[in-house]
Each structure stands twice: as structure tokens, then as C-alpha cells.
Simulated scan of single mutants.
Amino acid sequence: MPYINIYGTNIVYDRWGRGPLRVLLARRAADWDGCGWPEGHEYIAIDLPGYGRSQGAAGLQDDELAEYVLGMLVMLHATEAEIYAHPNAAGVGEYLSERIGVAVQALADCSPPD
């Protein structure tokens, strides 16, 4: 179970596959289970602080969660990755896009884009 410590909080993530990197943004990495993402890519799915296996207080606002995600992207050398936001993390994705300038594609469900 890999993790990175950001701002004193251990953030757990899953990493699998080989190929161009895609980051799957949801409250819990497990929210992507069974969604049918294709082979041929490397994936990183993060348990946001306070969710899943990660430490942290529940109830952080989307802008606060986005700061953790940005830290993860930098530390994992994933700032150029394709990023997809699950509906349960759409606000975090919007904050990353609008305020920080990171391109995030919002999804209607957990299925891969066409």
C-alpha cells in the first residue's frame, strides 16, 4: 500500500498498469473498482485525506483536498498526466482546473471516456 506524506498526512494511493499515465480522482481509490479502464495505461488512484485508507480529518473542503492532490501530482511526477474526476470528486477537479490551471476531465460516472 504505497503512500506519500503531505502536510503531515499519509495519503494512500493505488498504482497499476503500464503506458501513458492517467490519474483517477475520486474520494476513494476503490470508487474506480470495476469501472473497466483499459490496459495500455498506467493509473494512479488516490484516497483523498479523510477517505478510504488515507489519514486526515473528514469534511475538508474541495479547495483543501485539491491542495493535497496537487502535492501528490508533483511528488509522483504526474503533473503532465491525463486527470479524470469521478462525480464524487467533481468539485476537487473543478478547483484544480479553474484555480490552479490543471486540466481535469469530469466524468458522468466511473466509466472511461470514449
Rank of each mutant, 00 (worst) to 15 (best):
A108N: 01
G91R: 07
V12C: 08
E64K: 14
P38M: 14
G40E: 15
A108W: 01
C35T: 04
W37Y: 10
I4E: 15
G36M: 03
R53L: 15
P49T: 08
A66S: 12
Q55A: 14
E64G: 13
P112C: 05
L70R: 11
E39V: 10
G50W: 12
G91V: 08
G8Q: 05
G40N: 10
Y13N: 09
D109R: 04
N88C: 10
I11C: 04
V69Y: 05
Q55P: 00
M72L: 10
L107N: 02
G34P: 06
E80V: 03
G93R: 06
P38W: 11
A58P: 01
Y13K: 10
V23I: 13
Y43S: 06
A30V: 11
R15Q: 03
L48M: 11
G56Q: 07
N5V: 13
M72E: 00
E82I: 00
T79Q: 15
I6R: 04
P2E: 10
G36P: 13
I4C: 03
G8K: 03
E39H: 08
L24R: 08
Y13H: 14
L25D: 01
D62V: 11
L60T: 08
G36C: 02
M72C: 06
E98C: 01
R22G: 05
R53M: 12
S111T: 13
R22P: 06
N10W: 13
G34W: 15
N88R: 11
H77Q: 06
Y68R: 05
Y43F: 13
D14M: 12
D63Q: 11
V12A: 07
V74L: 14
H86N: 12
V23A: 01
G52Q: 11
